[in-house]
């Protein structure tokens, strides 16, 4: 579920983490702030994705993301929280390799440094 009944087609040149990051920014911005899981969760997910995208992430954080998704799903006041989970959870599920790549880069950088 990305957007409102619209389809966005991306080819392989797009890094899915960047896309997920952009979408999580959107949800953070759209969260009305009324309920706790959505208000706090959207921001936390954005912060973590931002780390990963900027090469500062770890695989532990990806697992944490998955658990945050679980803690938000169906526990928010309205469906925005569930929608916010979708791009993050599905991108991890289907494109875990994109995440791993960004994390591995970091880990090998650290080794060589």
């Amino acid at each position: 579920m990305l957007g409102s009944g619209a389809l966005i087609v991306m080819d392989h040149t797009v890094n899915i983490v960047e896309a997920a990051l952009r979408m999580s920014y959107f949800y953070m911005h759209e969260s009305c702030g009324k309920c706790t899981p959505c208000r706090e969760g959207t921001r936390w997910m954005y912060q973590i994705l931002n780390d990963i995208q900027n090469g500062k992430g770890s695989s532990k954080q990806v697992e944490k993301l998955e658990d945050i998704c679980d803690n938000m799903s169906f526990k928010c006041f309205c469906a925005l929280g569930d929608a916010a989970v979708a791009p993050v959870a599905s991108s991890i599920m289907h494109f875990r390799s994109d995440y791993d790549e960004l994390i591995k880069n970091l880990e090998s950088d650290e080794v060589s440094a």
Binding site: T36, P37, R39, E40, W44, D70, N71, M72, K75
Partner: peptide, 14 residues
Amino acid sequence: IKAQQGVLEFTLLN
């Protein structure tokens, strides 16, 4: 219990 812990984690996050 999982939900309560999750909500409290969010509440305490900041």
